[in-house]
Design a binder for these strands. Structure first.
Lengths: 140, 140
DNA sequence: TTATTGTTTAGAGCTATTCTAATCTATTGA
DNA sequence: TCAATAGATTAGAATAGCTCTAAACAATAA
């Protein structure tokens, strides 16, 4: 029932209408074969290189955006100048460690946003992002 | 009691330990003399030019960051690659219009985040950001 | 005043990301 | 199976937003 793990990432790509190329298969496996991850483009590019998969940074960006469009990935913006890609596309929020730049999931039901205001006239809510910014506690 | 409007921005700067220079005075007035604003660096730079105040973009960035450090301004990150500076430093959240890139304040008491999870061990919560991303309603 | 310290500036530099146009590859149809 | 074609990948240039540098300048203190 659960969509993952994908014994073959090929199905995943086909379902998204993407040709299962060498690069996309490798990136899909790096992203989805080890649980929930928060990665930057540079990061998976590095991992792909380390795994001897020849893939350019341009392709990494293309692929990440295609995965987002297909609903396989979600972009999290916490600081300008760098995007994180989150493999957990279920309803949830984030802790952001301001000193290390690390991002950690908070299950959706652990943060309740009650009394949401009505969206401005003519608009619909697309998503609600809650980011809890934390820093080392005083005296650590 | 309210800190604004500042008949003279000079006091504001002095209180922040910043020399009241021509550039800083002009920027303070552009920022704080007309209610709550969400501006980008390029934007106030443009406004300053339009007002014939000679100020470089580097100074605009320096000044914005000094104002943030002084608690006069707050940075809001909604999309990578661009920062917004919010003159409203009271507790509140935001609507973000994904198509136009516009940001609108939501008073703090119009969004209640209940059951905040405990911060990870060794950390303290610095701030909680709630961003409600809206888009034009279907059929508009 | 002058000395000192803080501020501003132009322009170079940097980082993350996107674009371009050429090459390559998966798929399709014969 | 093989060619045709639509789609994918690539290196490298380009861009955007922001920061840095080191020299000129301006506010304050003495």
């Amino acid at each position: 029932m659960s969509a993952r793990p994908f014994a073959n990432a090929i199905e995943l790509l086909r379902a998204a209408g993407l040709r299962p190329t060498r690069q996309r298969l490798a990136l899909a496996r790096l992203l989805f074969d080890k649980g929930d991850r928060h990665v930057t483009a540079e990061q998976i590019h590095g991992e792909a290189q380390a795994a001897s998969v020849p893939v350019s940074l341009a392709t990494v960006y293309n692929t990440l955006h295609q995965f987002i469009a297909a609903g396989l990935l979600r972009e999290v913006v916490v600081n300008s100048g760098r995007s994180y890609f989150d493999t957990n596309v279920s309803d949830h929020h984030h802790f952001f460690f301001e000193n290390s730049g690390r991002l950690v999931d908070i299950p959706g039901d652990h943060v309740a946003v009650t009394s949401l205001p009505a969206p401005p006239a003519g608009t619909a809510i697309r998503r609600v992002d809650v980011i809890i910014r934390v820093e080392p506690a005083a005296g650590e």
